[in-house]
């Protein structure tokens, strides 16, 4: 009888251990899968190009909980082969940020922190080197070769919208070959 109880206990313990391992393995895959789906199916933007988005509205369904008060530009980066150099004018209350495939926000620089305006960021992948000769660029190592860069600017009034859009559309991106 005791042996039987011990045996059942061991089986339950084993099932719990397997459940934990399977659960964790699946959970770890969720961020990467969601980022992949967002980049390739929802956005479907060409790599390494800024894409300007109009202000979010009730029709915006690509990303959950969009901000109605921000103007976004999105860039799906791929720095697996070459560094990527981006420049962006940062208007008041705006920032440029990066997201790796595990959803981590691996850098964010806002208009108060930027050492120059337009700000210059050179994104490199692990193992790459880049020598910034200008001293103006932020050289940032991306945790994953692919991911998302975002410029977000607060729309303080509807009257400012055309001007903010114009500023954001001046953002540039080029691979450094």
């Amino acid at each position: 009888m005791k042996k039987r109880i011990l045996w059942i206990g061991l089986m339950i313990l084993g099932a719990v251990a397997v459940a934990f391992i399977v659960n964790l393995a699946l959970v770890i895959r969720i961020p990467n899968t969601q980022m992949q789906v967002t980049m390739t199916e929802k956005f479907n933007f060409p790599s390494n190009q800024w894409v300007f988005s109009p202000p979010s509205s009730a029709a915006s369904k690509k990303v959950i909980r969009p901000s109605a008060d921000l103007l976004y530009s999105i860039l799906c980066y791929d720095v697996s082969q070459h560094p990527l150099r981006v420049t962006a004018m940062l208007s008041e209350y705006s920032s440029i940020s990066g997201f790796s495939m595990n959803t981590d926000n691996f850098f964010v620089i806002d208009d108060n922190q930027a050492k120059s305006n337009p700000i210059e960021v050179v994104l490199i992948s692990k193992g790459m080197t880049y020598q910034d000769t200008t001293g103006k660029a932020y050289v940032i190592t991306a945790p994953s070769p692919q991911g998302i860069l975002m410029i977000g600017a607060v729309v303080t009034s509807q009257a400012d919208l055309p001007n903010l859009a114009q500023i954001q559309k001046q953002a540039t991106a080029e691979l450094v070959r």
């Binding site: 961020p31 969601q34 959950i64 981590d104 926000n105 964010v108 806002d110 945790p143």
Partner: peptide, 25 residues
């Protein structure tokens, strides 16, 4: 949005608030 998030927080962010900035911002 933090690089110190555990896998479960990352998964939650992926499904409920993709592209969340870290708390200093």
């Amino acid at each position: 949005g933090s690089t110190g998030a555990n896998p479960y927080v990352r998964a939650w962010v992926a499904e409920n608030g993709l592209m969340a900035l870290n708390k200093s911002e």
